[in-house]
Design a protein around this nucleic acid. Structure first.
Lengths: 187, 187
DNA sequence: GCCTTTCTGTACCTATCGGTCAACTGCGGA
DNA sequence: TCCGCAGTTGACCGATAGGTACAGAAAGGC
């Protein structure tokens, strides 16, 4: 690989962590996936594996903030329901219809949770808040919006678990469709 | 520890795998948690870590078969809705209101999924089928029961992810309460 | 052309990994 | 009493883990 940029590395790093988890992502796997020797990796990430994972989580967070959370927050009353509906499309594409693991969710279940606790917490918390506010703007009763938002965000994570365990992507699609329906305002 | 029995070991083994994942559950951790040296462990599980994990998964499967799947299957039309409601209580107790990870779900997200694929698949498939049938017997339309069952089983897994990431057990309780409501037959 | 900074590959470090093994302990039956 | 064997221990194995050191290659300013 020609001179690498730290930002070019992050997607490949992310994929290694997604596929092997934090413990399982050995430096030799990372080295192989990025085409960089340890020397280069430690040049970009002096803090080693932990700093790599932190950088990956930060990038994921940034992506979701821009592509998912912000559209939800910025939607006005007129198009909030459209923004919520769009979220399901964005998320389904991001997770490749359930073939791709959510790194944040996977880390939350692993013992790396303690290491990255605040990051994981913030990601889900921000998602739930942004969705809940959009739901209210779309016409949902404020007193049930929080619970519905939690149910949806959790439901997406569960759909990933189930679709991956059953090895059936249509399960992911079907659950997301159900969640989308429950977010729609019935006349 | 006095002479150990293989069956006494399984709960301790399960807890180690739950807390550290398959990769993270090193033999030294397992040795510490069980109070047994490596020799003893290999006496009971000649296949090593993989056989330990398989045995743990088999026991979990057996527990769910007896405590969750069978009650759902054996309920007749009159008490199917009660059996479904009871399932939520059993599950909430088992997962300690979200404080305890679902090993099957966690492994499904990790790269150990390939190693235990069939076991993980079978666990969730059996759960979904048993719940779906009970829902039909409770009065749900057969054409939507499968989807609802998938949504519930996935929702439980997602509730575990979310509650653990947010470190708030009430999120788990609230999501389960919501799922229970959606399983209830409305008059 | 140089010289400095940035990047890269690799040899090497210690610790730990999963797993093996021979020796030992203690009990139950002949 | 002594044998056989299930159960146990901890030293040991090669492999690999994460991380460090350092020498050299490529780029950029001058």
């Amino acid at each position: 690989m020609a001179r690498a940029e730290r930002s070019d590395l992050l997607p490949r790093l992310a994929e290694v962590f997604r596929e092997h988890g934090y413990e399982g992502a050995s430096l030799s796997l990372i080295s192989q996936a990025t085409g960089l020797g340890k020397g280069s990796l430690y040049h970009f990430f002096p803090g080693g594996k932990e700093e790599m994972a932190q950088a990956v989580l930060a990038e994921i967070d940034g992506w979701f903030a821009a592509q998912v959370f912000r559209p939800l927050r910025e939607a006005n009353d007129a198009d909030a329901d459209a923004a919520v509906a769009a979220m399901f499309g964005t998320v389904a594409a991001y997770f490749r219809s359930g073939r791709r693991v959510c790194l944040v969710g996977a880390l939350s279940l692993s013992d790396a949770r303690d290491r990255f606790g605040e990051r994981l917490r913030a990601y889900f918390a921000e998602w739930v808040v942004a969705l809940s506010q959009a739901l209210v703007r779309a016409g949902h009763p404020p007193e049930t919006a929080d619970a519905l938002a939690e149910e949806v965000v959790g439901g997406i994570q569960g759909a990933l678990v189930l679709a991956r365990a059953l090895d059936r992507t249509e399960v992911f699609e079907r659950i997301l469709a159900g969640l989308r329906d429950r977010c729609a305002i019935r006349p």
